[in-house]
């Protein structure tokens, strides 16, 4: 592979082997998304599906040789999103521009729009990362995002306008 350096191949091998639970040299395509994420990529569900990822286990497998082009393809998708983009997204819901949004709206977005997450996933991430709602049902979204992206949580919850 011309566009995959030997360094990357090593990383890929390592990660691939982890998800190749049986060590059979064939990876269940169910794990394709997770594998790409383990390699530091941040693909959308749409992209994963396009690249051959499956929603259920045991439908399809992929060999390491097949995986390498998939990896390089996924890496081309530059739109992996940085923390700042992420803030921009939630700013759409920040009506008062004070760093707060309606908590219920956040879970609604995650559950029913775009590439929906399931309730378990949402519960987990909200439990881990979200500050409690205030009396008006508002939550500060910047600390939430910071925790998701594993950044230091800033003191100032207001977004930079």
């Amino acid at each position: 592979m011309a566009d995959v350096s030997s360094d990357d191949v090593e990383k890929c091998t390592f990660a691939y082997n982890i998800y190749d639970t049986e060590g059979s040299g064939q990876l269940d395509c169910f794990f394709l998304g997770d594998l790409l994420r383990a390699l530091g990529l941040n693909p959308t569900q749409g992209l994963i599906e396009k690249l051959g990822g499956t929603k259920k286990k045991g439908e399809k497998t992929i060999s390491f040789e097949e995986f390498l082009p998939v990896f390089s393809q996924a890496r081309k998708d530059k739109d992996c999103g940085v923390y700042e983009d992420f803030i921009e997204c939630l700013k759409l819901y920040d009506k008062a521009e004070n760093g707060l949004m309606v908590g219920a709206e956040l879970s609604h977005i995650l559950l029913s729009l775009g590439e929906r997450l399931n309730e378990k996933e949402v519960d987990e991430v909200l439990k881990d990362c979200l500050d409690p709602e205030d009396d008006d049902g508002m939550i500060p979204y910047i600390p939430f995002l910071a925790r998701i992206c594993e950044k230091p949580v800033p003191d100032d919850i207001k977004p930079v306008l």
Partner: peptide, 16 residues
């Protein structure tokens, strides 16, 4: 934007 948020959350969950 929604997809970006969701994929990031997926990333977070996968990492975890």
């Amino acid at each position: 934007c929604h997809i970006v948020i969701q994929k990031n959350i997926r990333m977070y969950l996968a990492k975890k």
